[in-house]
Amino acid sequence: MSELTYRRMKDLPSTHLLGTGTPMCAGCGGLNALHQIYDIIGEKSIFINAAGCMTLLSVYPFTPFRGSWLYTAMASAPAGAQGVRDALDVLLQKNRMSMQDDMQVVVLTGDGAAYGMGLSATSGAMERDLDFMYICYDNEGYGNTGQQYSGATPHAAMTATSRGPRGFPGFKKDLFSIWSAHKPAYVATVIGTEPLDLARKIEKARSLKGPRMIIALSPCPTGWDYDPQDSVTVGKLAVRTGVWPLKEYVDGKVVHTKVPHPRKPVEEYLKLQGRFSHLFEPQRDDALINEIQAKVGAYWEDVDS
């Protein structure tokens, strides 16, 4: 199969492998992305998880996964992948396991683990050219503990630990570039609300060997404070305003896979979310809105030039 498998929406898998009835919140953008990703990766897989919202997918004795699952800890899911992949290779090499029993080794963590505590383990796995996939669902904060700011939190966002009038003073870390600097086989950004773009990228990742790194922006009604029914709108606006660039890194080059044109003003994205409400109420904070708009503009100017 190649990425051309998915030309139109109707080419997308109609089977849905991941079970339902999980304890994720209604409208969880991370779960939405995971459903689509799992349909493509398939059940011949092991998901190696770090502490976060998704840890509660598998609660004894239930799991929505048809393949395997291993929960590790917050910092070391990539090391868990290393152990499993190495062991599978040893077993294959020593003829103690059939090829049929081999599987995709997939790390599944939130942004807190990916951008922070687990970054050293991820860097190590990439430097050892580990044959694995990494899915980071990025809800831009430590969601499971009540949405405190993390290394992925965007400028000005209100979180449980940035409640001041200007929100989070820092800036979202550029994990895509940090990962790409390791020259892994593949890096891509995706979002659940762009299913075709997501499917192509996951399919491409699946077909490659080595570290294949995916960051899925994951609109989070609970942490971002909006109505769960707006999850798709928020996701679509993240792309159309240019806040979340869809791109991939392969063979040393970065390609944008969906360039929003014309870009909508960022405030359309911001004003839907309670975490940015201080930019609009009690009075509009034009300076801060313009600052965010200017950053997005500068990013795309760099891309265009």
Binding site: I48, S76, A81, G83, V84, D86, V90, S120, A121
Partner: peptide, 23 residues
Amino acid sequence: RLVTLESEHSMITAAAAAASTGV
């Protein structure tokens, strides 16, 4: 197969993950 991890935290994770895979 000997693999140098980037920390003992990772080393012990990898050790147990490999043992859970059957080596």
